[in-house]
Nucleic acid binder design. Sequence first.
RNA 1: GCGCUCGUAGCUCAGCCGGAUAGAGCGUCUGACUACGAAUCAGAAGGCCGCAGGUUCGAGUCCUGCCGAGCGCGCCA
Length: 545
Amino acid sequence: MSFEERLAGAVRKAVQRSYGVELDGIHVERPNDPTHGDFATNVALANAKVLRRNPREVAENLVGALDAPFVREAEVAGPGFVNFRLSPEALWEELGYLLGEGEGYGRREPSGDPVLLEFVSVNPTGPMHVGHGRQAAYGDSLARIMGAAGRNVQREYYFNDGGNQIRLFGESVAVRYGGLYGETWPVSGSETAYKGDYTVEIAEDIAREHDSRLLEMDPEVALHEITAFATSWCMGDIKRTLARIRVRFDSFFNEKGLYESGAVDVVVRELAEGDNVYESEGALWLATSRFGDDKDRVLVKSDGSYTYMGPDLAYHRDKWDRGFRTATDVLGADHAGYPPRIRAGLVALGLPHEFLDVELVRLVKLVQEGEQVKFSKRAGNIVTLDELLDEVGEDVARYFYVRSSHKTEMNFDLDLAIKHSDENPVFYVQYAHARISSIFGRAETSPEELGEIPAGDLAPEERLLVLELLDFPRVIQNAAQKREVHPIPTYLETLATRFHQFYTVHRILVEDADVRARRLALCAATKVVLASGLDLLGVNAPEKM
RNA sequence: GCGCUCGUAGCUCAGCCGGAUAGAGCGUCUGACUACGAAUCAGAAGGCCGCAGGUUCGAGUCCUGCCGAGCGCGCCA
């Protein structure tokens, strides 16, 4: 149990003893100003009115009634805060526990209902670009964080391997392929849809494998071949990029299978037989507005084919049928209209409203020389994720992506990113880790060989470092609960600062065996938490750099 | 027009369930390596937390209204 929780419990008991009331939601926090102690609570202020006493009086009584051996000092301050200072023995003991847990510190075993985290899910019509990189980095880190927080999470990639976009893409590659042999391939639109250079590469690969054989076949059959080749080429490319940026998936789910298994038909039929559909203008509409959507949506088009509602609802129903009780979808912010209507459809199918949880990731705005560049896969003017990784490296990219909240807009100036990659704060955090490794190298020992920590007084820098280390479990829980990744980088940077400050003031490898043991313990604990935190972000913790 | 998400230092961003004097990094300026890694540390300058009301002991944080930005509002996904 953390000190926050233990303190909250002790405070609750003290209030109970003094006033005979049971309070819940007791808030204990780390004050900004270290002179306000290690922890503070505002219960006296928050509850003065209910107790009909003035806050300072409540605080005084609370201090008097407090029974908490790990607290060395409790005092009333300001308008009625109670500031606590912990005993060094308790802090060292807790640090010993941290070291005993090692990389597992702050992490919980997965339990509870399984959660399906779906992210990236980009169509296999081209390489991943810098915008996708953000969703990949966010989604993967979120999965790691939720897992560490004890959620039973599975990561899935949903890919669209049918539909109109795919057809247009297949045609675009076919045009390139035909072009290699001086043939003109007929397209359904007035012009080729996808123009990126990679379409030529794919066409060349097709030619390498099939030569001109496909040109002699029935065009529809040939197009089918080409499309299959092209999409699988792209999936391969995407998977390679994902692996490179250390993004892992447990499963890949393809849309086509939903049609082939009849799952889409089943869902549409089920809805059609219910009371929430009606016909209008030759189409079948689903009354999603009854369940919170802005307006109703077409389920079956007037030509008898399904809209995307069909497969998407079938897909989410499938998630439910597989036993998941929460479906977290990580989507680009351009899909903002999507959650209400899909959720409405799912509720119409009888699934609980809370089942679908959507996190919208703001798009990355590409800027070059102060001007916004519109990047479109179809126009071909994209900066690929691979290009970015070539320039700045995996650690810099992953850290950069998740350092700011996924909800805020992100301006991405590639030139600037390359130029300033040396200044990326990830190095600040990694440096602290490498520095500690170097200390252990010099001490000719390792974090594992430390043994018991002899208790003793803590210098201010040591105290702040310990308190920061012990905050890690809370940071993980908080981030998981709020589905945010950026608190981790924020925390790691603070921790690295606390360490560097401690390091600057105190020499670690001193003669005094107890002092040396304590300081090495601080180093070991910092090292393990830094490595663990960086791991949550998919970033390396180097021994030297 | 309606809906969602945002607006914090020159720039990029933090800020836990409403708490005490709003914090970092970059950039600018000044200092610190003859003991463990200076990719570091100490300090200075830099703020109407978009604006205006409201809620209360207390608001960057909650509510309302404006202003500004992005996205969405297809028988596209």
